[in-house]
Computed example of a mutant assay.
Amino acid sequence: MCYSFLCFSPWDEAPYKDATERTTQGNLTLKGFLSEWALMTMLDPRGSLANLLYIGYGGNPASALHVTRRRSVDRKKQQTERNVFHCLVFGPKNAGKSTLLNSFIGRPFSESHEPTAGERYAVNVVDQPGGNKKTLILREIPEDGVKKFLSNKESLSSSDVAVFVYDSSDEYSWKRSNELLVEVARHGEESGYGVPSLIIAAKDDLDPHPRSVQNSVRVCQELGIGASIPVSSKLGDMNNVFCRILSAAEHPHLNIPETVAGREHKQFRQLFNHSLLFMSVGAAFALVGMAALRAYGGRRNSSR
């Protein structure tokens, strides 16, 4: 590939190694090559630019990277101009998070389960209807790493969307995934960095747990997000999930979960703002009335 003539490759170590699509011989595909650049640019923009110059880029370095506007502005404008989207993947152990990432980069399904040690990335170019191409970066957050991740107030600020994976045949898996969803949603409400969220019901080839199905429908309605998406990596039936993740990211004002506490806080703020407005209008009327009274009194005195 492009780095075959160099003495090193910047993608031989984590988190870049095994993060993209490769051929059966282990070489990067074109999509994989472009995806590695996108991942490095997100994680290490200076390193990405340095490597670009190292391989002979002759253009203006300032034009090599495109700085997009803040995500908070995207939410207000209800649209985004991004071509690269960052998705957080949450879920309990053995829910199917790693399998989801493997499917995304074309890895074959495996029955064996190896717990993920630390965070992991998977990135690929997604073909959308109409011929558009967008790059999606999946970042797996291990269950035991969620607390540390959320300890940073701005942990969600660089993310465009979040998905919550659970084993559809396991009731506990659903309960834990729901807890993580509420936990992340609260963090978003408190920090101001709420993100569109989707629920993924993995292992759809197994018999679904009836109570989990019912509860997932109820929770989605209560939080104001879309219905859970059933997928089966084993059967290769991914239900167009990656395009649906991209679609959620491209509409940053939708599918943002709203907890009960967040809803009550929002209602309190609205009531408080209305009260301030009422008090301001009342004060304005009082001032106008006093001014009119003084003018009337002055006119009477002058007429005597």
Rank of each mutant, 00 (worst) to 15 (best):
G58D: 13
V163T: 14
S280P: 00
F85C: 13
R46H: 14
F90K: 11
D167L: 08
S157A: 15
V126K: 15
T24C: 08
R294L: 10
S212P: 01
A227H: 04
E250N: 06
D18C: 06
G224I: 04
G262W: 08
P92H: 15
I137P: 03
L53Y: 05
S158H: 09
V67L: 13
A38S: 08
S247L: 10
S168V: 02
S177G: 06
T41K: 12
T135H: 10
S232E: 11
H251R: 11
Y54V: 01
V161D: 04
Q128G: 02
N152F: 07
S233F: 02
D170I: 05
C220H: 05
R176S: 06
N60H: 11
T23F: 07
R139C: 06
W37S: 05
S168Y: 05
S212E: 09
D160A: 03
G56D: 09
N60W: 05
S247Y: 13
H209G: 03
A284M: 07
D237R: 15
E171V: 00
H86N: 13
A227F: 08
G47M: 06
T99Y: 07
G58K: 15
S103W: 01
T116L: 13
G59R: 13
L100F: 10
A117W: 02
L246E: 03
Y16H: 08
G282Q: 09
N83Y: 12
N60D: 14
T116F: 13
S177R: 09
L287S: 03
P230R: 15
S159L: 01
W11D: 09
P230I: 08
E21T: 08
E264Y: 05
A95Q: 09
K175W: 04
S303M: 13
